[in-house]
């Protein structure tokens, strides 16, 4: 095995970022014209496109719920999104991520407004440089808002982690591979409501507390960019930095 390379040199990360610095966020509004509402969301190279269809009649029919609309989220990584080609289609990993993303989005949608219908959210990861489920959620919440689906709030998501013993914001691919901890968080940040939380790697409870507060700051930043993008829904590409 190779000697482990340093991920932080002189308080800077390998891509030149500070410890608490997020990669550049890019948002594109309605890139998919056939969809009711769609959005592209980027954290640096990590690139997600989300598109929604519906509310429309639930199919198959036996799934119809007389009281609620059912939300169906499908997250998928495209074969060319990773260094080594990933097998097309739905993996066990994407089934789990679809489930937790679906749960987070369900929390903010007034599903009771559209009984007997379903709302589809399709999320494709075009390029994966870590934090893909966060980009997926951010794109999906914008897409739902643009589709006019009534929402209690927008879900904002970012990752935090621990690399070389330091707590950092927004994990990139090489940091995910060689770092100690990766933690994805989605919140309604100003209310401190956590809707998604998945962590792996070893931390103390004090380190975790620091991580979750940093995640809140990150989510607030994402939240502002999502809000700006939705407001400017009729201009095309905007860069927020």
């Amino acid at each position: 095995m190779k000697e482990k390379e340093k991920l932080i040199i002189n308080r800077k990360r390998l891509d030149g970022r500070d410890l608490y610095e997020m990669r550049k966020i890019e948002i594109q509004i309605n890139p998919i014209k056939n969809s009711m509402g769609s959005a592209m969301f980027k954290f640096g190279k990590t690139w997600a496109i989300a598109a929604t269809h519906g509310p429309r009649a639930a199919y198959p029919k036996w799934q119809q719920n007389p009281e609620f609309s059912i939300l169906k989220t499908r997250y998928m990584m495209l074969p060319f999104s990773t260094w080594e080609r990933s097998k097309p289609g739905i993996s066990r990993r994407s089934i789990e991520i679809s489930k937790v993303v679906n749960d987070a989005l369900s929390n903010v949608i007034f599903l009771e407004d559209y009984p007997k219908t379903m709302i589809d959210v399709f999320i494709d990861i075009i390029e994966a440089d870590a934090s893909t489920r966060c980009a997926a959620l951010n794109a999906a919440s914008i897409a739902l808002a643009l589709a006019g689906v009534p929402l209690k709030d927008i879900v904002s998501s970012c990752s935090v982690g621990k690399i070389d013993g330091e707590i950092v914001l927004d994990i990139a691919g090489f940091e995910d591979n060689y770092g100690e901890v990766d933690c994805a968080v989605a919140m309604i940040p100003h209310e401190e409501k956590v809707l998604l939380l998945q962590m792996d790697g070893i931390v103390t409870k004090e380190e975790f507390k620091k991580m979750i507060m940093l995640a809140k700051e990150g989510c607030l930043k994402v939240y502002e960019s999502q809000k700006t993008a939705i407001k400017q829904a009729f201009t095309n590409i905007i860069d927020i930095e």
Binding site: S106, K193, V194, L195, Q198, I202
Partner: peptide, 14 residues
């Protein structure tokens, strides 16, 4: 702590 998973459609505050 070595792993965390939140589940369900409800929320937890920090």
């Amino acid at each position: 702590i070595c792993a965390i998973q939140k589940g369900g459609t409800g929320y937890f505050t920090i």
